[in-house]
């Protein structure tokens, strides 16, 4: 059971107690590992990641991080438990400034430490600096995504989970985002991301899970799975974009 940095076992979850969407999904992520989740629209990828992040209640199964049970941790406790989550949509506060968005990301830290981390974030993402006191609503899609990631990294999490980080970005931006995530992994952070952009995502990640109808379908090393005829047929045809 143990050994993995992050582990989800037989997770059952959904938006209503009587109507589970995820019917017992299991997955794990190792330290400094990059893992992709793919699957058709409505497969439950976002739902799964929300359940892990504590946004949705888990009705059965368990989730552990570094051997600690975090299944019932309230959403706001996740940041302190070293898990960060970047939602698919509405992942920045548009009415707040860039700087305030970053300060919020450091809510679980003491004030001095928070300021220090925000300073570091500007070093890591210098492009954000010029917008420091602008409302986030002026940012482009790519810049918002960058802000959302920068915010998620403020607490120095062990695991960062992202829901479709490349959605709506230009091809150039997509490779930029993936390159940055790759850098993160090389610096020791684990990444778990949901992606529609299956081909590109599998190219950068170590392993991939395929979900369908709220269940595990296939899983394996990304490079091997990319050769799997079924996966190719369903997810990697037509440039790897389904939608």
């Amino acid at each position: 059971m143990s050994g993995h940095l992050f582990q989800a076992n037989n997770v059952v979850a959904g938006y209503r107690p009587d109507l589970p969407i995820i019917h017992g999904v299991s997955m794990h992520v190792d330290a400094a590992e990059m893992v992709t989740i793919i699957g058709p629209n409505g497969a439950g990828k976002s739902t799964m990641i929300k359940a892990i992040a504590g946004v949705l209640p888990i009705s059965s199964g368990s989730v552990t991080l570094a051997g600690k049970d975090i299944t019932r941790l309230p959403t706001h406790g996740m940041a302190a438990a070293s898990i960060a989550y970047v939602p698919q949509t509405d992942n920045v506060f548009t009415t707040l400034t860039i700087n305030e968005n970053l300060l919020l990301g450091a809510s679980s830290l003491p004030k001095a430490k928070a300021l220090e981390q925000v300073g570091k974030a500007y070093d890591k993402f210098p492009a954000l600096k010029q917008y420091r006191d602008k409302k986030a609503k002026v940012l482009s899609g790519g810049q918002r995504q960058m802000l959302a990631v920068a915010r998620a990294l403020l607490t120095d999490p062990h695991l960062i989970m992202l829901d479709e980080p490349s959605a709506g970005l230009s091809p150039l931006m997509v490779s930029d985002v993936f390159a940055r995530l790759r850098e993160l992994v090389e610096s020791g952070v684990s990444v778990l991301m949901v992606e529609q952009n299956a081909k590109a995502a599998m190219a950068v990640s170590h392993r991939t899970y395929v979900l369908a109808e709220g269940r595990n379908r296939v899983e394996g090393v990304s490079s091997a799975l990319a050769q799997d005829p079924e996966v190719i047929a369903i997810y990697l045809g037509a440039g790897g974009r389904k939608r």
Partner: peptide, 24 residues
């Protein structure tokens, strides 16, 4: 203040506020 910021964040998006580590 941090509390004031948290209040403004909560007004815009409660879920995102919680994800940010705010005890709503």
């Amino acid at each position: 203040t941090r509390l004031g910021l948290a209040m403004r964040a909560l007004a815009e998006n409660p879920t995102l506020a919680r994800v940010n580590g705010i005890d709503t």
